[in-house]
Every structure is written in structure tokens, then in C-alpha cells.
Write a protein that binds this DNA or RNA. Structure first.
Lengths: 229, 229
DNA sequence: TAAATGAAATGTGTCGACAATTTTAACTTG
DNA sequence: CAAGTTAAAATTGTCGACACATTTCATTTA
């Protein structure tokens, strides 16, 4: 599988296709963070005209993967510590609210689906001690589902359509394999319980804590690493 | 003055200029909400080529003023009640967090500036009973300033660069002239006090209440209007 | 040698034309 | 007359070329 974002619609035009390819290359770091983008070069590499490439670049800019300056050109965004922390702050606000809305708006069937998913994740974790799996795909699956279940188009677009591209980029480039997997699973369970109880306030609070915990974990690692320098 | 968004950078290219013109036309309703956009027609009206127009359309899509479907075309976004409420929910989350960050990150000078601005607003209000002014420009000024003072690029871009175009559009098209002006001023004062005290938690809570109050005010009006039908 | 100037080279912005798709309209058929 | 089919018109997507701005680099000058 190539894409994990559930809001990503299937590519119909060539600009769509190239957008996905470049997006993947940026997220994975094949096109390095902070590097300048040469339109003629990329157009040649992907065998398309510059117009089509520029269409793709516009979409990359929309999900904050590149930045453009008039008459100067495009750069892949820098992956900085500050940027990462700002991203987590923003996620805390948006996903917290999405979680509250999910608690208020989810259908009973959607809740049942989610419980099933979490149960499956739990078994996977027990059986294979699937730490690596859970923190990658499982965590994303859970968060995506909560956001979609907020049934708020504005929130869904902002988070899934924009923020999460950056989230995945940072995960790849900073190689985040923290040992928070089992704790994250427990936190997910708590959140789902609050949603099941239709307790929007608690659901938001738990989701915010969940994300804040990740952020603090990162901050701690940074601090430790700074001691070694 | 034409533009109020402080993050909007001066137009250097023709696409920039046309973007601003169309943006203005959409926000003001000169190009009606929900209407289809004809590329050839608009290109002719603004005396530019379709490529340049499409560049402008891409930016309009970035701030959620139009929606595009592949091989079909662009439409101006619909102004619906649901959309408006979703927008306020999102604002509550984002601006609440921005306000918390502002309380934590603002410099003392920025706080002094803000106090001066609010004091000026208060006098204007007293002197001219400037209800109309305050709810339009003054309210926007205050919110913009808080957001910018969060010093969080992610938040600033999401709110000022995207959400607030929609906010202004809804304000224009739904003709929001609610009698919340003096209450809003008081709420702003409370928020600034919390910021001055560096109380991030309270600042966020007050900002969320402030925005939620606007939302509930709208919901009430809708309900009243529905009784007349 | 370092700073300033100017020209060449590279890169971005804009244009008009063609290709591919969708929409419209006319026409056939039941 | 309604529904389905087909052809024409209109619209969007893509392309290559040119105009303009920026960057690079060689040359001049203090």
C-alpha cells in the first residue's frame, strides 16, 4: 500500500498522479527537507510539462509540504524541532475538538466499528508484540477514524488534508519509534470509552492529553540528546 | 482599505493581483456563493490567460473559497448554516489554543500594544457609540492580533491564511450585525487580562467561550427565524 | 584583495494552442 | 411523449514557447 490518508481521493489527472509521487518522495525524504525544487528538472524527471508540474506543486503547497516565493521558486519545508512542536500544539487543539465532536455526533454503528478495530489492534499487539506495527499504522488508523467521525468537514479537511501530511513527514524523517506503543493503546481505549459514553468534554480532554504526552515525550528526547553534545 | 488580513503579503505577480480581486468579489458576494466558475469567462473578464487565472484559482482553493473537481470545474463554496457552525467549532479549537499560546509567548511590549489598542477601541465605542465599527473591524483586529501573538506559524497560517477568509465571507453574506458589540468588548478585555496574567489555561477558556457565545447567538437567531416560516 | 558593475545563464511567470473529457443538443427509437 | 443514443459544442487538462525576474559569474575598479 502506498497511501494511508483516507481523505485522499483517487488520482484521475496526471497532475494528481505526479502530486502523489512527489508527495511520497518528500514524506520519505527522497527529496530532502529544505532543498530547493527546480521546476525544469522535476518536470523532466517525471516526463511532464512544467504547467502540469506546477499544478502538482500547488497541491503540495496546499498540504504545507513545500513553500513558494514569487519569482524565486519552491523549497521543501524544513523539518525543525520548533516546527514539530508547533505541529503537535495544533494537533492538540484540532484533534481534541474533533474527538469532542465525534463523541457527540458518531452513530452507534461507527462506535461499534471503532471498538472492533481497537480490539483487533489489541490482539495484534498481544500476539506479535507488534509494537512497531501499532505505533505506525495502528495509531494513524485510530486518529484518522476519530477525525472522520467528527462529521465536521472543516476539521476533517484541515487535519487529514493538510496537517497529517506533515505528521507523516516528521515521523519518517525523525524516525519516531518511541516506546509509547502500549501506553498509546491504553490511551486510545480510554478515549473510545469516553466517546462510547457520549462524554464530549472528557473525550476532548483525553485526546489532548494523549497528544500532549507524545509532544512531551519528544521534548524529553530532545533534551536528552542535547546533553550528549 | 481593501484587505484586512495582516498575513496577506503584497501582490507581486498578476496572478496575485487577480487572486485578490476575485477573492474580494467572492467574499462580498459579487460572485455568488455556490455558483459555477467558468475559466474562459473569468479569464476574459480580467484580461488574463487561462493559465494565470488557474494559478489564481489554486490560491482561492487554498483558502477554501472555491472547490474544484477534476475535469468538471470550480464552484464557489456554499454558504450554509451547517458550514457556518462547523467554522465556529473549528475557530473555537484553533483560536482557543492560539490564545493560550499568546498568553505563554507574547512579549511584554506586544501586551502593551494590545492594551493600547483595546483602550482605543473602548474610547471609540463610548464616543461614537461605535457599535457598527467595533463588531466589524475592531473585533477582527483583536482576534488577528491574538493569533499573530501566538507566535505559532502553523496556527497563524491555518487561521489567518485560511479560516478567516471564510469568516469574512460569512459575515458579509449573512449580514452579521448582532448586538453583541459591547459584550464582545468586555469579553475581549477579560481575555487580555488573562493574557497579561500569563494564565494560558484561563485565556484559552475565555476565548473559547467568547467564540462559542457568538456561535450560540447565531444558533438562536436561526431558531427564531425558523419559527417565522 | 575586495567590492561593485554588468552581462550571460538559469529559472519563474504568462501566453496561446491542442488534446481529452464533460456537457449540451439533436435525433432516433420504443 | 419519454427514454436512450449519438454527435456537436463547450470546458478543463496539458503542452511548448516566449517574456520577465533572479541568480551567477566574469570583469572592472578602488
Amino acid at each position: 500500500m502506498y497511501l494511508t490518508n483516507p481523505t485522499q481521493q483517487t488520482a484521475v489527472t496526471t497532475a494528481d498522479r505526479v502530486f502523489e509521487q512527489i508527495q511520497h518522495a518528500i514524506v520519505e525524504g527522497d527529496i530532502p527537507s529544505g532543498s530547493k525544487i527546480s521546476e525544469p528538472e522535476l518536470a523532466k524527471r517525471y516526463q511532464i510539462s512544467r504547467s502540469t508540474l506546477r499544478e502538482a506543486l500547488n497541491r503540495l503547497e496546499k498540504c504545507h509540504l513545500i513553500e513558494r516565493k514569487a519569482n524565486v521558486g519552491s523549497r521543501v519545508v524544513d523539518c525543525t524541532i520548533e516546527g514539530l512542536l508547533e505541529l503537535y500544539i495544533t494537533r492538540e487543539a484540532l484533534e481534541g475538538m474533533a474527538c469532542r465532536q465525534a463523541a457527540l455526533n458518531m452513530s452507534d454503528m461507527e462506535i461499534a466499528d471503532m471498538q472492533a478495530m481497537l480490539k483487533a489492534h489489541g490482539q495484534t499487539q498481544e500476539l506479535k508484540d507488534g509494537v512497531a506495527y501499532y505505533q505506525e499504522q495502528g495509531d494513524l488508523d485510530f486518529h484518522y477514524k476519530v477525525i472522520l467521525c467528527s462529521h465536521n468537514k472543516q476539521l476533517i479537511d484541515l487535519i487529514c488534508g493538510q496537517l497529517y501530511h506533515l505528521v507523516r513527514m516528521y515521523r519518517c524523517q525523525f524516525g519516531m519509534n518511541s516506546p509509547r506503543a502500549s501506553r498509546a493503546f491504553n490511551e486510545h481505549s480510554q478515549i473510545l470509552q469516553a466517546i462510547t459514553d457520549r462524554d464530549g468534554e472528557l473525550a476532548e480532554m483525553l485526546m489532548r492529553r494523549h497528544i500532549a504526552a507524545s509532544r512531551k515525550n519528544i521534548e524529553k528526547k530532545i533534551a536528552e540528546q542535547n546533553l550528549l553534545d
